[in-house]
């Protein structure tokens, strides 16, 4: 415990604050100090810039969120930078080791394996999920009776995710008693070991990831509803068939939504954890996802410093991939607003 916090708690206890409320006192005191500082800053700003009322009000209203962000996001992040430079097992005090954890990570073959498995998963599953969700959304955008039932049916699996989904699929892909191998056996096919087979474990998880395309499908469906019908009419008048209409109208109009889904898909897939955790990393580390390896180091091996260093390495990887995707998207994504802006500039 931080000595200052301990001193405040002592003081509160000696003033007769009930024991259950004592841990809250330092936090409340911190909030009071912060709002005193913010109030002083607002008062000073009001005197210096009398016309800046709206700006001051804005900062005052967003301050609760900003304080929460600073305390519960920036604070722990800053703390994890420090922890990543230490060797700490939670029991004995942390020892400063400089960049040793980062150097170790660069030489750790399991970090390489974790990156390989995670990137491979992202590389295959994101395009597959994107394509399937978009295809399903196109089909579900048709004007056919009972379409709402189909949309519900396609979305429903998304509600079973995380641990429940993994447990369900462990049964489906159980090599001895599972549904999948039972069905394959009826066609005379000897099913593989799925999660028990090092060469099949990752493809099985990728296959599983298609179970939850319903969420992205709903976003695509909303986007498809938003494409102006007059664009299709104009294209039809110019002699464009369904394929050309899809290529020259639907796809450009949907490109910002595809980019959004692809980006969130990439970030989500690089943070995949549950599947690796439940399968205990899979045979021969075939499901050693990066976040699972990080967790393993933090909460199984109690190497908090090393795990924090791994967290920052993952942060750098995600940041780099997101930047590359955004940069690359400039050539492929069409924004109507930008066109209007350039029209206004030309006008």
């Amino acid at each position: 415990m931080n000595p200052t916090v301990g001193w405040i708690r002592d003081l509160a206890a000696s003033w007769g604050v009930p024991a259950a409320l004592v841990p809250l006192v330092p936090f409340l005191l911190l909030l009071i100090v912060l709002y005193a500082v913010i109030g002083l800053a607002a008062y000073g700003a009001r005197r210096r810039w009398p016309r800046a009322d709206r700006t001051i009000a804005f900062w005052l209203f967003v301050s609760p969120w900003l304080i929460g962000f600073a305390l519960f996001t920036v604070g722990p992040m800053a703390s994890s930078v420090y922890v990543s430079l230490t060797s700490w097992d939670l029991i004995t005090p942390p020892k400063f080791v400089g960049l040793a954890n980062y150097t170790e990570a660069l030489q750790d073959p399991r970090v390489g394996q974790a990156l390989k498995v995670t990137l491979l998963y992202a590389l295959i599953s994101v395009p597959l999920q994107t394509a399937l969700a978009f295809l399903v959304a196109l089909l579900l955008n048709s004007d056919v009776p009972g379409m709402r039932v189909f949309r519900t049916v396609w979305y429903l699996p998304s509600l079973v995710s995380g641990v429940a989904q993994m447990v369900l699929f462990l049964w489906v892909f159980n090599p001895q008693y599972g549904l999948m191998n039972d069905v394959l056996a009826r066609f005379g096919i000897q099913g593989p070991g799925w999660f028990n087979d090092a060469s099949w474990a990752l493809p099985t998880v990728i296959l599983m990831s298609l179970w939850t395309v319903g969420g992205a499908m709903v976003i695509y469906l909303a986007g498809l509803k938003d494409v102006p019908p007059n664009l299709y009419e104009a294209a039809a008048l110019d002699g464009a068939g369904p394929v050309r209409q899809f290529w020259h109208v639907t796809l450009p109009q949907m490109s910002p939504i595809i980019l959004f889904n692809a980006l969130t898909g990439i970030i989500g897939s690089l943070q995949i954890f549950t599947q690796g955790f439940i399968a205990n990393g899979g045979p021969k580390d075939s499901l050693l996802f990066f976040v699972y390896y990080l967790y393993d180091n933090a909460f199984q091996n109690f190497r908090m410093g090393y795990a924090s260093a791994l967290a920052w390495i993952l942060f750098a990887v995600i940041l780099a991939l997101t930047a590359v995707t955004l940069r690359g998207s400039a050539f492929a994504v069409y924004y109507e607003t930008e066109l209007n802006r350039s029209k206004r500039r030309r006008g």
Binding site: W7, L34, V37, Y82, W88
Partner: peptide, 27 residues
Amino acid sequence: MKKLVPAALAVLLAAGCATGNAPASSK
């Protein structure tokens, strides 16, 4: 006034950075 905001941030970061397992205060 300009010094107050960095000071507040420093307090926040110090609170966030507070780690270790020093024993609870003596009292």
